[in-house]
Design a protein around this nucleic acid. Structure first.
Length: 225
DNA sequence: CCCCAGGCCGCGC
DNA sequence: GCGCGGCATGGG
């Protein structure tokens, strides 16, 4: 078992399955995780919700994104037709809580233009869409389209940079994970979610090394200095 | 008051 | 190709 497999095992043991990506549940009226179910989305509506969430979540807390998604939901606007026909300024006001709302309103419209173009949903085509970069594109491919692509984010970088005491760029980290893990979208989904959880709870900006499940492998661990 | 959050674009060099 | 400022709200 390689290092990355072992990290995964330890994080999963500590935090349990995360159930990403959270989806709105009409019955409870809330956004809910779905532990151990890697088959979602089940409908185009759910797929679209993940896409919108991924764009709104750029450099923004999930709580603020939820409010924006709820706003869209309440106006029956969490669908491409409604977003398409709504004036960009109006749209921006509805998603205001997600921050950068003027930009994000434009991003949503640009992405819907892409979906309507019927171009194939490939990584290269998605990266050509204005407003979505590597992380957003990979999140969409993995969580909305169930493609085995590993998502790298600021948390992944922070954790890995501390463990190996060196900085990695996006492509290097993505390649590292994808070459060393089983090519399985459920593992990629879970691993990314676990890294987020670990970074939020333990490997924070001010790290909490004594509680860290990976401390024995970490070159930055305070306890070793 | 500060800093941060599930980034990306446009620009200058 | 890399670094930097701008984008913006809500919570701690």
């Amino acid at each position: 078992m390689n290092k990355l497999d072992s990290f995964y095992k330890k994080l999963l043991k500590k935090y349990g399955p995360q159930g990403w990506w959270p989806l709105f549940n009409p019955k409870t009226g809330r956004f809910e995780y779905h532990k151990n179910d890697y088959s979602l989305p089940k409908t185009d509506a759910q797929r679209f919700e993940i896409i919108v969430g991924a764009i709104l979540a750029q450099n923004t807390s999930w709580k603020n994104v939820q409010k924006a998604l709820m706003g869209l939901k309440e106006k029956d606007m969490l669908n491409s037709e409604a977003i398409k026909k709504t004036d960009e300024k109006i749209l921006a006001s509805i998603i205001k809580s997600s921050g950068y709302h003027n930009q994000k309103a434009k991003k949503l419209k640009k992405f819907i233009e892409f979906l309507d173009s019927k171009k194939s949903v490939s990584r290269q085509n998605l990266l050509n869409v204005w407003g979505v970069g590597k992380e957003t594109v990979d999140s969409i491919l993995l969580y909305a389209f169930n493609q085995p692509i590993f998502v790298v984010d600021a948390y992944t970088r922070r954790i890995m940079s501390r463990i190996y005491k060196k900085d990695f760029d996006y492509d290097t980290l993505q390649e590292l994970f994808m070459k060393n893990l089983k090519q399985d979208q459920s593992i990629f989904k879970e691993y990314h979610a676990l890294l987020v959880e670990h970074a939020k709870r333990v490997c924070k900006k001010e790290s909490n090394c004594q509680e860290c499940s990976l401390k024995r492998d970490c070159k930055s661990c305070d306890l070793l200095e």
